[in-house]
Simulated scan of single mutants.
Amino acid sequence: MAEPTLGTGEVIVDVVAAPVLSYADEVFSGARNYPLDLPVIPGCGAIGRVRALGPDATRLKVGDWVFCDPTVRSRDDALMPDITLQGWSARGDGGLKLQHHFRDGPFAERIRVPTENAIPIGNIDAAQAPHWCAIGILLIPYGGLLALDLKAGETLLVSGATGNFGSATIATALAMGARCVIAPGRNEAVLADLRRRFGERLVPVRLTGDPAMDGETMKRAAPGPIDAVIDFLPPSVGADVARTAIMTVRPYGRVVLMGGVGMLGGGDLGLPYPWIMRNLVTIRGQWMYDRTAVPKMVGLVRSGLLDLRHFATTEFAVDRVNEAVEQAAADAGPFRLTVVRP
C-alpha cells in the first residue's frame, strides 16, 4: 500500500501496537457478515505516536503517544452521526460511505485517522504499548457502564461475565466503585479466576440452564437488590439466558444491552410488558462509547484504579498477522490479548 497522505482534519500515526480481536477470524471468514468494502487494511484501534498533523490540531504534537480510536463519526449531523469502525465494520449506508474514506485500519506501519480520533494517553515506554492496547477492549464495556449511569456503591450483574468483554466489564465496574459485581457463568475455572483476581466484591454464580432456578440464585447471591444489569452474551447464546439475567434487576433498575444475542437467529428477548412498566425498569441498547469516554478511561488507568497488567499479551510482527488471528481465536479467554507490532 502507498503511504497514507495527510488531509485537513486528519492525523497520521506510526502504529506501535494494534490489538487482534478474539473474533477476528469470524469477521474475515464472513461468519459475522460485517460490511467491509475491500480491499482494506483491517484492524480495530491502535496505540502509536503522532507522525504528522493537520492545521486544525491545536494540542497534539509530533511524537505524542495516542490511542487511535476506531469509532469514526460523520461530522455533518451532530444529532444522528453515522458511524464506521475504521478497518472493521460500518453501521448503515452512511457508515459505509464514511468507510470509503477512513477505510484502512492499523495492521500496518502507519494509519491516517480523524484528528479527534488520535487521543493522547501521556508518555509511555514502547514496551508498554501492547498492554495499553487493552483500553480498546475496556472502552466498550466502559461505554455501556457510562450509559448505565453506574454509580459508586451500586450492585451490578454482568450477563456474559466469563467472556472477553464481560470480564473487562467486571474490572471496569469495580474501578468505577461498584459495591459488588455478580458474575454468572458456566465455566467454573473462569469464575474461580475472577474471584481470585477481584476478591469479595466479585460474586461468582454458576448457571444450571434452568431459568427459574438461575434467576433466583443470582438474586440470592447479591448482597442486596441488583441495581443494574449489563449484557455481553455472544451470538451463540439463546435469548432465554439474557432474559433470565435481565429480570433480576430491581424495580427502578437499569439494563444495557451490548452483546450479540439474536445475530445468528433464534428467539427474541420476549420481556414482559407489565414487568417493565410496573417496575419502572429502563432498558437501552448501547453500541461502542462516547468520545469523552477515552480520556476518562485513560484517567482510570493513570490513577491506578484500573490495572492493565490483568491482560496477558501475545505479540506478533505484522507480517505474521494470520498467525495472530489464529492465536486470538484460540486464546479468547478473559484478560487475554493478542497484538501485532509493525
Rank of each mutant, 00 (worst) to 15 (best):
D290P: 00
R201L: 05
C180L: 01
I83S: 00
V15R: 13
T313W: 05
D240Q: 08
R51N: 15
L257M: 14
M80E: 01
R73F: 09
G224V: 02
S159E: 12
D125T: 14
R206I: 04
A183G: 13
I170Q: 05
A242W: 00
D56E: 09
L271V: 06
P120Q: 06
R75N: 08
D240A: 07
A221I: 11
V16H: 15
T217N: 14
I83R: 11
G87L: 02
L269C: 08
I47G: 05
V40Q: 08
F311L: 02
D214T: 09
R196D: 15
V203W: 09
A152K: 05
G144N: 03
G270A: 09
G260E: 06
A134R: 06
M288F: 06
A31L: 07
P120Y: 03
G95E: 10
I276E: 03
L174A: 05
V281Q: 06
D125Y: 10
L300H: 00
R51D: 15
V261K: 07
D307C: 09
N123C: 04
L280A: 11
G259C: 07
I283A: 05
F102M: 12
V241M: 05
I170M: 10
G260H: 06
G224Y: 01
A221Q: 10
I140F: 12
A171K: 04
G224K: 13
I230G: 00
D69K: 01
G48I: 12
M247H: 12
S236D: 06
A17D: 10
E326S: 14
R75W: 03
Q86I: 05
A129T: 08
R336F: 00
S167V: 01
V340Y: 01
C133K: 12
R220S: 14
G253F: 01
L38T: 07
L145R: 01
T71L: 05
R59P: 00
L138M: 13
P225I: 07
G95D: 11
M80Q: 03
A152E: 13
V321L: 02
G238F: 00
D231T: 12
T313R: 05
I41S: 02
G105V: 03
T84C: 15
A317R: 12
E315G: 02
L53F: 05
T58D: 13
C44H: 10
P114L: 12
I124D: 08
L257A: 08
F198W: 15
T217D: 14
G63C: 07
N187E: 07
P272F: 04
S167I: 02
G199Q: 07
A161C: 11
V62T: 13
V66H: 04
E188W: 00
E315S: 15
A31W: 01
A171C: 03
F28H: 12
D104R: 13
A192I: 01
K296T: 06
W287T: 15
D231E: 14
P42M: 05
M213K: 14
G9D: 07
P114H: 09
M247E: 15
R254G: 01
T169I: 00
A31Y: 05
G267S: 12
R186A: 10
N123F: 06
Q99F: 15
A228K: 09
R201W: 02
D125Q: 15
H101M: 10
Y289H: 13
V249W: 03
V203C: 07
F28E: 11
F102S: 09
E3Y: 08
